[in-house]
């Protein structure tokens, strides 16, 4: 694994909020085509991890790498332009714009390229989205909005797709559906980095996982190994 360059990596990243030390010596590697999850409870540092990837929080020491390049100091826009796309928590669609316009905006940075393949892919994954193209995004149901949000992210042909708590705010049945879709997206070739509280769901589809506890990565292993890990079972997976 060390021969290939990870698409996204954290190298000894430490971050602070004033005097408070949040991320402690974080090392993460995500390779092309993988589905990796970041697990942890509240106040574990998951949020800060995402903010650091996107450039909202600069590391005090260490750096973030995209395709092996040190991106410290890069603006959010630069990072997005270089293939980092995120599906925010709570979808955050442009509710006043139509579904089609939302998808189009997802491809904003791909000037003049032919988007038909990408549209096809989105419609393939989310047939319901195709039906609702002309509707204002705010009129869709929660589950449908989630699909549009993911579709919008896919339109950018991201190098790595970040997902912020995809299970949050959805009914359990929809959660399972969601993760199934994320799985499909990954199998179709997109690298996915999921930050998630629901460890069961996340590990069921992931290749690997990192576990954050008070800012420190305490476990880093394949998904199967994590699921079998007794500490994990007790703390995060509930007694299965």
């Amino acid at each position: 694994m060390s021969d290939r360059t990870p698409v996204l990596a954290f190298r000894d990243v430490n971050t602070h909020y004033g005097a408070v030390h949040i991320l402690k010596d974080a090392n993460i590697e995500i390779y092309a085509g993988e589905m990796v999850c970041l697990l942890g409870g509240n106040a574990s540092g998951k949020t800060t991890t995402l903010k650091t990837i996107l450039g909202y929080v600069p590391p005090t020491t260490g750096h973030v790498e995209l395709d092996g390049e040190n991106v410290n100091g890069w603006s959010t826009a630069q990072r997005v332009a270089n293939g980092v796309t995120m599906v925010p928590e709570n979808r955050r669609l442009f509710k006043r714009m139509t579904v089609r316009e939302n998808l189009e905006i997802g491809a904003y940075l791909r000037h003049g390229e032919d988007l038909s393949e990408d549209y096809d892919r989105v419609f393939d994954l989310f047939p319901r989205v195709k039906e609702r193209l002309a509707q204002k995004a705010g009129t869709l149901s929660g589950g449908e909005q989630q699909m549009v949000a993911m579709g919008r992210a896919l339109m950018a042909r991201p190098k790595v797709l970040l997902m912020d708590e995809p299970s949050m705010g959805l009914a359990p049945k929809l959660v399972a559906q969601n993760f199934e879709i994320i799985d499909r997206i990954n199998k179709a070739g997109t690298t996915v980095f999921v930050v998630e509280q629901n460890a069961n769901m996340a590990l069921s589809i992931a290749d690997r996982g990192y576990v954050l506890q008070t800012g420190r990565i305490v476990l880093d292993d394949t998904a199967e190994a994590l699921m079998a890990n007794p500490q994990m079972r007790e703390a995060y997976l509930g007694d299965i």
């Binding site: 996107l54 997005v80 442009f94 714009m97």
Partner: peptide, 18 residues
Amino acid sequence: SAMRAVAEDKEIAGLMGI
């Protein structure tokens, strides 16, 4: 479209690369 996106939600618009 970018104007409308920014008017509706600046942060997410930024996330789209606008």
